[in-house]
Structure formats: structure tokens, C-alpha cells
Design a binder for these strands. Structure first.
Lengths: 234, 234
DNA sequence: CTCCATGCGTCGAGTTCTCGACAGTCTTTG
DNA sequence: CAAAGACTGTCGAGAACTCGACGCATGGAG
């Protein structure tokens, strides 16, 4: 239950000054989040904040049709539910665990108390919110303008940055949902990238072979979002 | 320069308690924003906040290709640049005036001072940010999943809510940019809606004939975003 | 009034993606 | 081992949208 004694891979927590971190530390605990776990659905009261050390959490917008499409992702550069540190919040989206995560967990109650006392934490929350908003509006444009292949590549790159491996566990069906397209389209695109030697895949596993080439296939949105985070959360 | 003597159509300002409003009022001034005016571009330091009384301001994400696609809109239910009340901010998007607006204008310096003193204003800013984020993630999904016709209808409805007229001045070319599609596609969709008696248009002007039918053509995203604003900014 | 810039109509080839269907293959489980 | 379930491969018809091109109408400026 004491996060300060281990390496803090979460960059948000790592950037907090010592005294501010001391307000949070007694209430943090490390949890392992297994793949596929549902953390909240739209309308749920947010009562816990997660700071991932690794792995990916997806924010998904639910549609009436039952479709659930990814609208943003959270990794070690951010936190899930952080806006609720400011005051009570209902979730706007579904949050599910994309890849197995180790994350620091804290109750909204405790982080709100720290938020009231710590200007540094308030500032961090604000900048995180801004970065997440930037992420979202870039995705609005990306989904309107860019091909499935470019978005597929962008998704792999974003995921690759957040796990310490060239191997990503994911099925094509799952990725099709994330991107909001048909599975057959994902199959076709994946085959194309494999033929070019950029990725290799089999049943539920994708290996990234040539990351540099993947960046060439991806749209600019990958870099834009990444730079937004770096500017706002150095 | 005294906004308190006239009807406050901007719902954000109208919801502020009297004492909190008194902190802002001396620094507010009404401005007329003409159609097409550029208020900021990505990277610009935000130095002014606008609270529209009517009309629409569009937030547009700029791409390397030169495309500028709409990622959110601001009307009388919100404000432009409000996140900067919390602290210095760079714009993430282009903001342009979509339809002629009357808006209250205040410098970031002055609204930040009020923000420091007024818990009600701080709360308002936070809820506005949350609503705008909800708007953005809904648009992420909408652009991935919904047809141009549905998004066209959604756009008209959103605009219609914010101007006190059934007549909207806009060219098809302009709307094509907003939606991130070809003009010829907009022409085809507009013709379809006119044939059905839902809208009528000519050179740069669209009349909404049957709003109820337009809601049927639109996707659910119109209502979802609207309800998000109503919940967070009553 | 004439010119001319702007905005709309249309056409057609081509690409991307959808949607449903079914077959094949791998993995897990009983 | 056998059965069931999960994942990928493929196919084909069709819808949606792109992209470039060109012509026509409208309305404002000189």
C-alpha cells in the first residue's frame, strides 16, 4: 500500500513534488487489472482513480446500436477518472482494460482531499484534462479523414508505447470494435501490413516487426497526440 | 461594458450567482463577431474568453494536409477559451465564427482573477470542461460510425438550436469542410433532404422546413450531447 | 448592363468499406 | 481424444464516398 518505495512508472505521479505525493501515498495501492475488466460504464458514479504504470485502458463511447468504439486511451502518461478529483462525476464512457495493467488505485474521496490541499495536484489535473481533450479532438478528425490502415497503425503505435514488449495480445475482432469497422476490413489491412513485413500476427497476437515503417503507415495523429501530452505533462 | 443591465442569453453567465457575476461584470464587454472571423489557431496563447449570447463558434482541428474539420462547437450554452481561466493555455484548435454572434468578451487575466476568488465560477469552469469533453468523445464515435446524411442533420440541428431563426447562412462547400467530406457528397445529401421536404436551400442559405423530420434523420449523437450539457450545466 | 467570382448540379470511374455467409484452423475443456 | 468455442481467411454483391472535371445559375461589383 506504499507506492513511494517502488519505481513509479506512472508519469503523472512521478512528476508530483515530494510533499504533494506524500498526501496521496498513504491511500495508494497497487492493483493488477486483468485484460477485459470493466472499470465503469456511462452514468456510473466515479469512485476510484487509476494511475497505470503500464498497459492500456480504453475509453469507449457506447452507441444505441450496441457498438462500443474507442474514443481515447489511458496509459502511464495519464490517469482514469482524474476529473473526479475536482468534484463528483458521472462517467461519460465505458472504461475497459485493454492490456493487463499494474496501476496505482486511490479512492475519489482521498484524492479529492489531496486536491484541496495541493496546488501542484490541481495543476496536474488541469493539464491532464487539457491533454485528454486534445487527444479526443484529434481523434474526431482522424476518424473522419483517415483510412482504416492509418488508424490501425496509429492504434498499434499508441499501444506499443505503453507496454514494454513488441508483442500485443489482441484479436482482429476486438480491434475492429475499437476502430468502429468490420472485422473483415481489419483482416484485409492486417494481411497487407504483414505482407509488407511490418507486423506478424496469429490467433490473438500481433508482433511489431518494423516500428519505423509502421510510423510511416500511421497518420499524423499519433505524433500530434503524443506531442500534446509531452507539452502539457512533461 | 456592463453586461448586467441587459438580458444575459449566455447560459453559463446566467447561471452564476449574483456576487460571483459581480466579479466578472466590470470586465465584460459585448462584441459582435462577424461570420468567418478567426479567433485563434493551434498554438496561439489564449488571451480572451468569449461567452456567446447567440450564434455558433466552431472548434476545428487542423491537419497537415490543410484540412480543417470541426471537432466541437460553442454556443450560448458554453464559452470559448474557458479552460484558460484556470491557467495559461495554448489553443489546441482553430476557432472561427460560424454564424454572426453577439458575445460577452473578457480577458483571460480578469477571468482568472475572478476564478481565484469565486468557487461558483471554478465549479462552472469544471463542469463546462467536462461537457465539452463529452461532446468531443461523442463526435469521435459519430464520425467513425454514422453516415454523412445523419451527421449533416445533426449539424443543422445543433446550429438551429443556437440561432433564433429557421434560416442558416452556409454554403455546401463550407459544410463539406466542417464534416470532412467532399462537396459533391454534401450536394447529394442536401438534395435528398430537400426532396423529402425537410429542408430547402439555395446559394448559401438553408431553410429548415421540418425540424421534427430532421431529428429523425439525425443520429442519436445530437440528443446525447444536448443531454450532457443539460445535465452538467443546468 | 456586363462581367466575373462564387456556389450548385451532375457525371463517371474508381476506391474503400459494409454486410452476410461459410470454411478452415487453432485452443481449450471435458 | 473428442467436442466446442474462438479466431482468421475468403468471397461477392452492393453501398457509400472520393476525386476530378465541366457546365450552369446566381448575385454582386464595376
Amino acid at each position: 500500500m506504499d507506492g513511494t518505495l517502488q519505481a513509479l512508472q506512472n508519469r503523472l505521479l512521478a512528476s508530483l513534488p515530494r510533499d504533494d505525493m506524500a498526501l496521496l501515498a498513504p491511500h495508494l495501492s497497487v492493483v493488477n487489472l486483468e485484460r477485459g475488466r470493466l472499470l465503469h460504464d456511462p452514468g456510473d458514479k466515479i469512485d476510484t482513480v487509476y494511475f497505470p504504470h503500464d498497459g492500456v485502458i480504453s475509453l469507449m463511447t457506447l452507441m444505441e446500436s450496441g457498438a462500443a468504439i474507442e474514443s481515447a486511451t489511458i496509459g502511464c502518461e495519464g490517469a482514469l477518472g482524474l476529473m473526479a478529483a475536482v468534484g463528483p462525476r458521472q462517467a461519460l464512457s465505458r472504461a475497459i482494460v485493454q492490456t493487463p495493467c499494474k496501476a496505482e488505485r486511490i479512492s475519489v474521496h482521498h484524492i479529492h482531499e489531496a486536491w484541496e490541499r495541493s496546488p501542484a495536484l490541481r495543476d496536474l489535473v488541469d493539464r491532464h484534462t487539457e491533454a485528454l481533450f486534445g487527444h479526443a479532438i484529434q481523434s474526431v478528425a482522424c476518424n473522419a479523414l483517415h483510412s482504416v490502415e492509418a488508424r490501425f497503425a496509429r492504434w498499434l503505435l499508441t499501444c506499443h508505447d505503453r507496454i514494454s514488449s513488441d508483442r500485443i495480445a489482441l484479436t482482429q475482432e476486438f480491434l475492429a470494435d475499437m476502430l468502429g469497422v468490420q472485422r473483415t476490413t481489419v483482416t484485409a489491412v492486417a494481411r497487407g501490413l504483414q505482407t509488407k513485413g511490418i507486423i506478424r500476427y496469429r490467433r490473438g497476437v500481433v508482433d511489431i516487426i518494423d516500428r519505423h515503417a509502421l510510423e510511416g503507415v500511421s497518420c499524423e495523429c499519433y505524433g500530434v497526440v503524443r506531442r500534446t501530452y509531452e507539452r502539457l505533462l512533461p
